[in-house]
Deep mutational scan, measured.
Amino acid sequence: NQASVVANQLIPINTALTLVMMRSEVVTPVGIPAEDIPRLVGMQVNRAVPLGTTLMPDMVKGYA
């Protein structure tokens, strides 16, 4: 099963992502693939992302 990117903490709206904010986990539904974590660093979320939430492509500005 493919691992997805999951929020390791509450990520406030418009926050630029850092490695410490994300972890990989096998979840359903599948979100952004864990191998894209390096690409996500520095990108901003367009909404608040609660701890444990799977990051979906539409949550990250410029990802989709």
Rank of each mutant, 00 (worst) to 15 (best):
A34K: 14
A7D: 00
N46S: 15
G52D: 06
L55V: 09
A7M: 06
I13G: 03
T15S: 04
L17G: 00
N8C: 02
N14G: 12
T18L: 06
D36A: 04
N46M: 12
P12Q: 13
I13K: 06
L19S: 11
L51A: 07
V6H: 03
S4E: 00
V20F: 05
N1F: 05
L10I: 08
V26W: 15
T15A: 08
R23K: 13
V60N: 00
A3R: 10
G42V: 02
V49R: 04
V41K: 06
N46K: 07
P38Y: 15
V26G: 05
L17S: 00
T54G: 06
A64I: 12
E35M: 05
Q44R: 07
A3E: 06
T18Q: 07
E25G: 10
R23V: 08
V45F: 02
I37D: 00
I13E: 07
L51E: 15
V27H: 05
M21G: 04
P50E: 07
L51Y: 10
I13Y: 04
N1L: 11
L10F: 08
G52K: 11
P12S: 15
S4Q: 04
Q2F: 10
M59V: 06
P33M: 12
A3Q: 09
N46V: 04
T54M: 15
L55N: 00
I13D: 08
A64N: 12
I11S: 01
E35I: 15
L19E: 05
A16E: 04
G42I: 01
A3D: 10
G42K: 04
N8R: 04
R47H: 06
P50D: 12
T54P: 15
P33H: 11
V27T: 15
Q9S: 08
V27G: 12
P57Y: 14
T18K: 12
M59F: 09
G31T: 02
I32W: 03
L51P: 08
A16C: 03
I11W: 01
V5L: 05
M21T: 05
M56N: 08
P50A: 15
R39P: 04
L55T: 01
V20W: 14
A7S: 05
M43G: 03
V5A: 09
D36Y: 06
G52I: 01
M22C: 02
A3S: 09
E35F: 07
G62V: 08
T53F: 03
G52E: 14
P29E: 07
L51S: 13
T54Y: 04
G52S: 12
N8D: 04
I11P: 00
T54V: 11
M21A: 04
L40D: 00
R23P: 01
Q2G: 08
M43Q: 06
V20H: 08
I37V: 05
M43R: 09
T18I: 10
T28F: 05
I11D: 00
P38R: 13
Q9T: 06
T18P: 01
Q44W: 13
K61Y: 10
Q9E: 12
Q2E: 07
V20N: 06
A48V: 09
A34R: 10
K61L: 07
Y63S: 05
I13H: 15
T15D: 05
S4M: 04
M59E: 08
E25M: 09
N14T: 07
S24F: 06
L55S: 00
N14W: 10
V60E: 01
G62S: 05
L55F: 09
V27Y: 03
V30N: 11
D58K: 04
R47W: 13
I32P: 00
T28D: 08
L19R: 11
P57K: 12
N14A: 08
V27I: 10
S4Y: 05
V30T: 10
L55G: 00
L55E: 00
M59H: 10
T18N: 11
M43W: 07
P50T: 11
P50K: 10
S24W: 09
A3T: 14
N46E: 14
R39I: 04
V5G: 03
M21N: 11
I32V: 12
K61Q: 13
N1P: 13
V30K: 11
P29N: 08
N14S: 09
R47M: 10
A48P: 14
E35S: 15
M22R: 00
M21V: 12
Q44M: 15
S4T: 08
V45P: 07
D58I: 13
M43L: 09
T28V: 13
P33W: 13
R39K: 06
M22L: 11
M56C: 02
P29L: 04
D36E: 06
G42P: 01
G31P: 00
N46Q: 13
